[in-house]
Nucleic acid binder design. Structure first.
Lengths: 149, 149
DNA sequence: CCCTTTCGTCAACTAAATTGACTATATAGT
DNA sequence: ACTATATAGTCAATTTAGTTGACGAAAGGG
């Protein structure tokens, strides 16, 4: 099958764009004083926002084992970003919830991400963003946000 | 600043699209029998294709230390994907070049990536790909392809 | 020629995941 | 109600992919 030269570069562009985005958020967070948070923590916050979730659900979201998720929660709890609370419906389970500090960090990260794409969006023709969102959602399928590599 | 709901999801879409792409290539490679290669190796092949490069150049390309790159080359050499040859111009340097097997793997990976975006492209309106390439290149800036997280 | 820098590798250590084993709780079958 | 099995989470040991530090060999500039 014949493809345009552009098509060949596209995989690299998608990768590079994702990197640029994460680096931008990471840099903004570091600048805001959150030097003890890595991107993986940000991905966890996404799932924890709202009512929180169990360790197992967090593990599924991140695409790692329950043990790894448990360690991540340990870390975040030690730094006061989250708290473990007993699960109301299941005595075995642990409900992990964001603390005030955790919610503040989540807001900062979310804002940083929105800023990054806003700057980008302003460099594009109006309406292009909606197109791109739709197009990317086709490529994304049901993949999670967490890179497994 | 006010942003559309779409803008908020965009960061996740970009990440998910990148993941889907890498997973697709990885899966195709595994299916083709390359079960001993990880995405990091693929990123190395990109740089090695053509005349090859030194360990230091590879390290720069991958965004890791020279020591880490040296280990990666060890691994690839043990599996016969690359060979170390003396550098023609610099007695200290090592020129790392792809073997026949390495070139075959590189072609397979490249084809898998092209296939993935081709399938995607065929689901989009004609001409949209060129727009997306341009738009993504703005977001990508000069970021490399290798995630540092 | 030295003196300094650069290229690559060896070694030891670290970070973040894995697999395996175990306890406590929940749930299904009889 | 009682036993059997499955599930949630954690502890421990191991693996993996990277790091920092130290070094020898070759290059290059006073």
């Amino acid at each position: 099958m014949k493809v345009s030269p552009t098509t060949d570069e596209l995989p690299f562009l998608v990768l590079a764009a994702a990197n640029a985005l994460v680096e931008s958020v990471q840099s903004a967070m570091a600048h805001a004083g959150y030097t003890d948070l890595r991107p993986a923590h940000g991905f966890a916050f996404v799932r924890l926002a709202g009512a929180g979730c169990t360790v197992g659900q967090l593990a599924d979201h991140l695409g790692v084992t329950k043990q790894a998720a448990s360690k991540l929660v340990d870390e975040l709890a030690r730094q006061d970003y989250v708290a473990r609370s007993p699960h109301p419906d299941d005595g075995r389970a642990v409900l992990v919830v964001l603390s005030d500090k955790g919610r503040a960090a989540t807001r900062a990260a979310s804002q940083a991400a929105t800023d990054a794409v806003s700057v980008w969006a302003s460099a594009l023709e109006p309406g292009r963003i909606e197109q791109i969102s739709y197009d990317l959602s086709l490529l994304a399928g049901n993949s999670g946000v967490r890179p497994t590599w």
